[in-house]
Design a binder for these strands. Structure first.
Lengths: 111, 111
DNA sequence: CCGTATCCTAGCAGATACTG
DNA sequence: CAGTATCTGCTAGGATACGG
């Protein structure tokens, strides 16, 4: 009885978490980003959560992490190849939402 | 500064909630479904939560509700036209996940 | 600079019981 | 039948402070 829907639920549990999408989106548009840079790009996020999300995303193979053992240390995050395909899907989702919000506005104005 | 990403996050907050996808999926495959029918299709869900989710989904225009004032009362839920487009996106997402899980398995077996 | 450890809090999930 | 009301955990998220 555990069919495909459950799998979607799995990924949703990762992507559905707060900030996951913000992170992916920022990596998508900025390419390679450092930890604090990311934090500046998403000002409302806390280090704790950003760290957690990145760890999860890395574990799931959605984000790759590169450590440069310099002083001070430098860590760079980017999307993996696998995530590139996801990008297009997210893009579609985005379009869908925008279209839908526009219609929403029209409906309200029409009243 | 509230650009498109924020909108995606919005929708994710709805869809990302527990059971939302299960509900949409069931409506997708069964077409028109009554409250208790839905509850039977998702046995682990409670009335409280099902009711909440349906309300949220309805508010967001993802689900339509039709009330037949019979006795006993009959209420039917179904997807809206707008949600149909979403279906295809979710389907793609599903494919992506499955593909990705297969690769995952292969990697583990290759060890 | 890049995080982890700690503690605190809000809100969600679920069980149960009850109404039009 | 189709819900709402209420109560109780629980845990994800957030603020803060500190360490490699």
């Amino acid at each position: 009885m555990k069919e495909d829907q459950c799998e979607v639920a799995d990924i949703w549990e990762i992507l559905g978490k707060r900030w996951s999408l913000h992170i992916l989106k920022n990596l998508s548009t900025n390419g390679t980003v450092r930890f604090n840079e990311l934090k500046r790009l998403i000002p409302e996020i806390s280090s704790t959560v950003l760290s957690q999300r990145l760890l999860e995303l890395e574990r799931e193979g959605l984000v790759s992490k590169k450590i440069y053992p310099e002083i001070p240390i430098r860590v760079e995050y980017s999307l993996t190849n696998r995530t590139k395909e996801l990008e297009s899907i997210l893009h579609q989702l985005n379009n869908w939402i925008n279209k839908w919000k526009m219609l929403e506005k029209k409906r309200i104005m029409a009243k």
